[in-house]
């Protein structure tokens, strides 16, 4: 028989009761709420301080209300499924532990802003992915491909390392005040996606991409609110990436 690790991780962890206050929307309506109407609902769950907000949401869904809807997959911050507004800030539910919030007060959970709500915490991601596709997010080269790998120095590789980390969770884009009000703006994620190629020494499409970002929907809309950098669960310096793109446009040099 197997020795199963029964204990949740290191040492003892404190059990607690937390209140989740969730902004809900049912597109088909419920007994008490019209189709598409948004309303707050509170749930209490028994949890451990080291549990993720995602675990608490699962407890609601699995034990109390099966209709609560949200996306999730990896549960450890790498797939980008579960960006939500938790206590007013964009975060991944699977990367936010209860102990890092104030469990004495209700934890508010809302869908990310600026994208149409489909159901509860699920938003329509299509406009977000459409912006990403606009910036031609793929390596562009000319001439015949070499037989072996293209060479790239570790220094050149390091130039765009930060922006390769993006998991497209939309936490940045949906935290941007310009994105909320301006339906045209690509949003920070698309600029991050473009940065990843613009500063890749192997790529030859940087000026095509920069031209797209120079457009009226592009980088100049950014008013450097820094929300995006704070929201990024991967620690990408989003505002820095955007300013590097702006600098490339003004100086004409990458």
């Amino acid at each position: 028989m197997t020795a199963v690790a029964e204990s949740p991780a290191v040492g003892e962890v404190t059990a607690l009761t937390v209140t989740l206050k969730i902004l809900r929307t049912n597109p088909e309506g419920t007994a008490d709420h019209a189709a598409g109407e948004s309303y707050w609902e509170e749930f209490q769950v028994e949890a451990h301080a080291t549990d993720r907000v995602l675990d608490a949401l699962h407890k609601v869904k699995w034990d109390q209300d099966g209709s609560l809807s949200f996306r999730r997959s990896c549960a450890h911050g790498v797939c980008g499924s579960d960006a939500m507004r938790i206590n007013g800030r964009n975060r991944l539910a699977c990367k936010t532990l209860l102990k890092d919030l104030n469990p004495a007060r209700p934890i508010t959970v809302e869908p990310i802003k600026g994208l149409p709500v489909e159901k509860d915490l699920i938003v329509d991601m299509e406009p977000f992915f459409a912006s990403y596709r606009e910036i031609m997010p793929f390596l562009m080269t000319t001439g015949a491909a070499p037989t072996r790998e293209r060479l790239q120095s570790p220094e050149d590789r390091a130039r765009f390392d930060d922006t390769t980390k993006c998991i497209m969770c939309a936490a940045c884009t949906s935290s941007c005040p310009v994105f909320w009000t301006d339906g045209q703006y690509f949003g920070p994620q698309a600029i991050v996606g473009a940065h990843r190629f613009i500063f890749d020494s192997r790529d030859e499409g940087q000026w095509d991409r920069l031209e797209i970002l120079n457009d009226k929907a592009g980088v100049w809309k950014c008013r450097t609110a820094f929300n995006c950098t704070e929201a990024c669960p991967r620690g990408i310096e989003v505002t820095k990436a955007i300013s590097e793109v702006k600098r490339a446009l003004t100086s004409g040099e990458v």
């Binding site: 790998e149 060479l151 120095s153 765009f160 190629f197 890749d200 790529d203």
Partner: peptide
Amino acid sequence: AVLDLEKMGLPFNRTPEGKV
């Protein structure tokens, strides 16, 4: 398979000579 991915743009870590 690795070289194909590199040509598609995959950012592998590099040796000092710039190889994968």
